[in-house]
Write a protein that binds this DNA or RNA. Structure first.
Lengths: 258, 258
DNA sequence: CTGAGTTTGTGCGATATGCGAACAAATATT
DNA sequence: AATATTTGTTCGCATATCGCACAAACTCAG
């Protein structure tokens, strides 16, 4: 975080505080204050003030020298989720669909160059999923069907910015990383109203469709499963009407609400 | 937020910034900067600096005069969820159980005088659930079976503090609000290893059991359903072995991990 | 148990940050 | 078009925040 670049009125203390919250994670469920300073590039005294402020506000707890985030931190994300009408509208519709199709369903939005899950309905799967799939989880947009749908909803200028910023790294031998091929895939998926991606970010297939409001694509709705466990192409074909129906129902309700 | 009471080293700017994030919610998905100032008691100039800092960091977006939280804010809660081993361990076990029992299952922790959901698996229900049930959602502890289980895991001193702080307001005619009766119910539930609550916070029944690690109760696992739609007591009896089995599986894994 | 190394807590002086007020500019409403 | 309301900007000021240095506490190896 380059303080010198901040604009006037930018609150550096606040920004530093948020950086400390972000420093917690799967690999660092707890941190000492020296670790917090190291991970954020702050001075130890500063990291200490931030952690003590979080402690006083109830967002962290202290266990000897270790600080851990407390459930109250979920209030911050909950502010967003509870304000997200597409999430509230989609949730029961996703639940109905998952019952029929027996695969987990996700709702995602674009955030920078990544997709971020804002809704999820789990389901029994033949092979156990990555246990870390949560609301808030992120994936590179280009490697997922959800991401391609969302990228397809960008204006040309925004799509150009995406390609300027995204680093198209192959995650599997099948990952499309050539920008022209990726643009073509995004356009094709946009035109045909769905995206199907097979083994570009792991050993999974996924299919996704757009969710729209009066202004355009606001989210993507998708289903993913492990490749090869079933007849993938036939399964995709059976899922598509379900997804399109669910997405249409969500989109229709969104247009009425706003 | 009474600035004058803050301890030395307490970072007021950071605390104010977090207050602005919390001001967003279901009823205020978007705010102007005057509204943000009004809702947080800050000056307009201050609220503006905070919102512009969040804008620059990518946590909010601006639409004319309106500011809205962006999905990136989920990163803050995700820091916590991804660090929460009980959540990761419980999720697949909950998914398996929900498939068998056909009712939604929740994992909750105690936070102040409330329970907060840290895990949830949805299911098809006969009657549509409150659409707003998300991770991060809170309920008064005393009115829920999850809450009674968690209160039962408190030390006597901590339980006394709970009773000092909690406001035991009747939410339905069945809500237990007499402190002595509530203490007795908590103890009974702790002793018998499950809690069953019927229509104390709405028209729902719920049953919950403890999840423990080496230090004691860390979470509660529960199932809830609308009262009267089925034979509630018989259903509870059929659910209990399922919940106990799932909770035992989670608890056993927790003990191995730490 | 001791000593060395590491980490945290504390106090203090300096100053950069954050603040609020006042007024200009822009927007919304009637 | 006029008025009311809200937002943007600038500036001076106060203090909140900062970093440093040293004390205190803790951890670890022998």
């Amino acid at each position: 975080m380059n303080d010198a670049d901040a604009s006037p009125g930018f609150l550096q203390s606040f920004a530093r505080g948020l950086a400390v919250i972000r420093a917690f994670g799967k690999n660092t469920p707890a941190m000492t204050l020296s670790q917090a300073a190291a991970r954020t590039g702050l001075t130890r005294a500063n990291a200490r003030r931030i952690l003590l402020t979080l402690l006083e506000l109830g967002y962290v707890e202290q266990d000897g020298r270790l600080f851990r985030l407390r459930p109250k931190i979920l209030d911050l994300g909950y502010s967003y989720l509870s304000s997200l009408s597409v999430g509230a509208i989609a949730q029961p519709i996703m639940e109905d669909m998952v019952l029929r199709v027996k695969e987990p369903c996700n709702l995602a939005m674009l955030d920078g160059t990544e997709v971020i899950y804002v809704g999820r309905v789990a389901a029994k799967q033949i092979v156990r999923d990555d246990l870390g799939i949560h609301i808030g989880r992120r994936f590179p947009a280009y490697t997922t069907s959800l991401g391609r749908i969302l990228l397809g909803g960008l204006s040309p200028a925004a799509l150009d910015r995406y390609f300027n910023e995204a680093q198209l790294v192959p995650l599997t031998p099948r990952t499309i990383t050539d920008p022209e091929k990726l643009r073509a895939a995004i356009k094709r998926d946009h035109d045909r109203g769905f995206s199907y991606v097979k083994q570009e970010s792991g050993e999974r297939c996924s299919i996704a469709v757009p969710v729209t409001d009066n202004n355009g694509i606001v989210a993507a709705l998708g289903i993913g499963w492990y490749a090869g466990v079933r007849a993938d192409d036939e399964f995709r074909d059976s899922l598509l009407p379900e997804l399109l129906g669910a997405a249409r129902e969500v989109s229709n309700t969104l247009r009425q609400v706003r």
